[in-house]
């Protein structure tokens, strides 16, 4: 079970002077239950790519297949199948709080499920569940206007609006952009919990676009590097971040943590070996110091 992109290319405004090719022959496979990250400079085609994955844009050439169902279908039956397949994918845009519009938080979260034509009880159940997932108390916030919330809360309410549709794949475009450190941590924690699943919940597939390399290193199972519409590297973050030439070519910098570890190793203060987060870094330093 996976989403497959086969040689996907996309051109904005073809046949005009503003013509611009945003994607060039991108091929990737997104397996169920894993945490993917997409990194790239502004204008490298990340946003276009995720809109292809969830079927908002149709490739100029190439194909997107969601769990065996091609999204570009001609027949009526094929289109129906494609629409159902698209429902498995939830998309959280950049600054999702800007799409809030209803009078209350609960009504806004209910917007997606209502469009899916669910029963009122099912909608109510999903709203409560989604708000609980993003750690907003239904009793306290459900009846409030979304515009009364703080920045971080607004964003979590908007994410709840997507989660209420119970997608199996969740795509997030820079979910932490413009938040304070506390809000950032809360969102990342939420995404991580969703992906891990547990407590009777299926693990969710996460596809996160991010400029924060340290977050990618810490959370992602696999990362993709985009540059000028092409996929220039993919693999486990620890491996990709070792290829500094590819990174600097794409206009990216390695995570601060890895830069620090590099300096510590040069000074002989830390052991060699993969480091993904602060905890592992501390252990590597302890072991490095123990050897001295």
């Amino acid at each position: 079970m996976s989403i497959e992109l086969k040689n996907v290319s996309y051109t904005y405004m073809p046949d005009t002077p503003m013509e611009r090719q945003a994607l060039m022959g991108v091929t990737m496979t997104l397996e169920r239950g894993r945490f993917y990250a997409i990194a790239g400079h502004t204008g490298s085609g990340k946003s276009t790519l995720i809109q292809q994955i969830c079927g908002l844009l149709t490739p100029t050439s190439g194909e997107v297949v969601v769990e065996g169902v091609p999204l570009k279908a001609k027949s009526k039956e094929g289109k129906k199948q494609a629409a159902l397949a698209k429902r498995k994918i939830g998309l959280v845009f950049q600054y999702p709080e800007q799409q809030l519009f209803e009078e209350t938080v609960a009504a806004d979260v209910a917007f997606g499920p209502r469009n899916q034509g669910l029963t009122e009880e099912e909608i109510a159940r999903r709203v409560q569940k989604a708000l609980a997932l993003v750690d907003l108390d239904y009793e306290a916030y459900g009846g409030k206007s979304p515009f009364q919330l703080s920045g971080g809360q607004k964003r979590r309410a908007a994410i709840a609006g997507v989660l209420a549709m119970e997608p199996e794949y969740l795509i997030l475009d820079e979910p932490t952009a413009g938040l304070d450190p506390k809000g950032r941590e809360a969102i990342l924690e939420l995404i991580n919990t969703l992906q891990k699943g547990g407590k009777g919940k299926e693990p969710m597939t996460i596809i996160m676009v991010s400029h924060a390399m340290d977050d990618i290193l810490r959370l992602a199972d696999e990362m993709f590097v985009m540059q000028e519409g092409r996929l220039t590297a993919s693999g486990a973050p620890a491996e990709v971040f070792e290829r500094w030439d590819v990174l600097s070519e794409a206009g990216l910098e390695p995570p601060k943590l890895l830069l620090l570890m590099e300096r510590l190793r040069e000074a002989g203060l830390a052991e060699r070996g993969p480091v993904r987060n602060l905890k592992e870094a501390v252990q590597a330093v302890k072991r490095g110091l123990g050897k001295c």
Binding site: L56, L91, Q99, G112, N115
Partner: peptide, 10 residues
């Protein structure tokens, strides 16, 4: 962008 966001909400 908003149209697409609401479209992805059905």
């Amino acid at each position: 962008r908003i149209m697409k966001a609401q479209q992805s909400r059905g």
